[in-house]
Design a protein around this nucleic acid. Sequence first.
DNA 1: GCCACCTGCTAGCTTTTGTTTGCATGTGGA
DNA 2: TCCACATGCAAACAAAAGCTAGCAGGTGGC
Lengths: 114, 114
Amino acid sequence: MTEPTGDELVRLLGTLANPHRLRIVAALLAERAYVSELARELRISRALLQVHLRKLEAAGLVTASFEVGEDGKTLRFYELTPFSVVLTPAAIAAAVPTLTTPESVRGDGEEGRT
Amino acid sequence: MTEPTGDELVRLLGTLANPHRLRIVAALLAERAYVSELARELRISRALLQVHLRKLEAAGLVTASFEVGEDGKTLRFYELTPFSVVLTPAAIAAAVPTLTTPESVRGDGEEGRT
DNA sequence: GCCACCTGCTAGCTTTTGTTTGCATGTGGA
DNA sequence: TCCACATGCAAACAAAAGCTAGCAGGTGGC
């Protein structure tokens, strides 16, 4: 996570560039929580929270796992994945060369042939 | 810039979460440039570049200034504003309390009354 | 005068994001 | 059985972001 690729950086930034998601990160830093609980804590609907959690998960910032609570209910716990990225012009310049454009994406990696 | 407010952080992240803008930052780190020149270098239209530059400027990441070139033409030069932000769960948690919600915005700061 | 290059602006379209609403399912306890 | 609480998913809509196309104005050089 010290030197993300350009695409990863864009995804990471795009994922964190949202008030709800920042609050989620902050809440999960304090302690892991299951969906419904977290929704109540943050005062947002479960559906909305789910969308945001999915995005955070897709970016690798949080991880989910099912667990059975004391009362036997199945709960989906989310917890934070530690990360640390330094945002400076130099760091950005280093990531830019690895940015892929829609067209430059052929297979997955670059294969040299036209 | 060491400890941006929640809103500033969101704007900063949102501004950088774009391939074009990252490229612009990288290009300006190498050297300041005027609009048309930069557009050619980045292979994007001037109109598009302008939109992105505007956004970067709004976020305080770049600054603009008019200058007269050797041939007497008026050029608008852009240059990078140094910045450094560390992105970690803790840093985010620190910024979250200062996030404002559309409703919580009355005057500007908080005034206690309902 | 005409061409080349600089600047700026915006109306309008497309795409992506964000959000709500509503339905379907499963389990434990009264 | 019925209620309370947990999960998941999708359709539909609203809002924001991204991009293009086109017009307009200015200056220097041939």
